[in-house]
Amino acid sequence: MIITVASGKGGTGKTIIATSLALCLKKGIFIDADVEEPNAYIFLKPEIKEKKPVFLNIPLFNFKKCTSCGKCADFCQFKALAVIPGQVIFFAGLCHGCGGCRMVCESGAIEEGKRLIGEVQAGQINQLLDLEVFPPNKAFARHKDSFTGQRLIFRQGKLNPGEALAVPVVRAVKEDLPPKNSYPVVIIDAPPGTSCPVVEAINGSDYCLLVTEPTPFGLSDLKLAREIVKELKIPAGVVVNRVMAEDDLVEIRTYCQEENIPILAVFPFDRQIAYAYSKGIPLIYAYPEGIEVMQAILKQIKKEIN
């Protein structure tokens, strides 16, 4: 079961929800697909054990064979190539690595090259109940069983600074996951917005959790994010974060009813949570009631997709 946490609007609380959701799993994989600025590691404190470079395929030109016919430049949808007699000018920053230029070249003058654009890091999350950092409380004592024997794998994609193309790194961070039977649940923290990297993060998920906040911006971007999951035919549910009063929810509720998507949980606008966030402490430690909420969300999602 792959659950992607997305939002449309940035800063609604995607990461704090996604990380706590992962922390409530017995066995699972957490993937930070916000490759332009991965920050879930701050909450999950993983031990990174593996690093794998991510390359983009780029064209390499053999000018002995090139006839300056210009077919490659005509084909390139991203205007990464310009052909002038005897020369091809390549704008690496615009190339999406589709390889189309190589396919349309009739003189075999284009070979496949590689350009490093980022990295995938993988490791384990293993210091969850560090009682010195997170003093035990009654809520945790009650859930002790759910946390013993916990096994969580951590992954994150990192796009190199200055690079424009996040999609290949998002794709790479989702590739070659450990077998489903040993890690049945995958939580993906998507980038904010509604552009290509978000689509790539959500694509292939079984469920999409849309985190929003009770502001006009939150609702507006929720609608945009909803359009993406509709297009991708992925079932979705909503989590509303930072709610101060029941009144806050009126418009979001109306929208969700119209769209026939459930509101799976509501989190309060809470000083404790904000404080924990500022210290890199996961939500459920500051707000232990959240454990039950997260477990309920997971249960509900399971029910909805079966």
């Binding site: 210009g70 430049a73 991203f78 205007k79 990464a80 310009a82 052909v83 002038i84 704008f91 615009l94």
Partner: peptide, 16 residues
Amino acid sequence: DVSGGAGIQTAQKLVK
């Protein structure tokens, strides 16, 4: 109407 690479595309036209 071009999202990106407008200058590149235009320069290419003039070269042709």
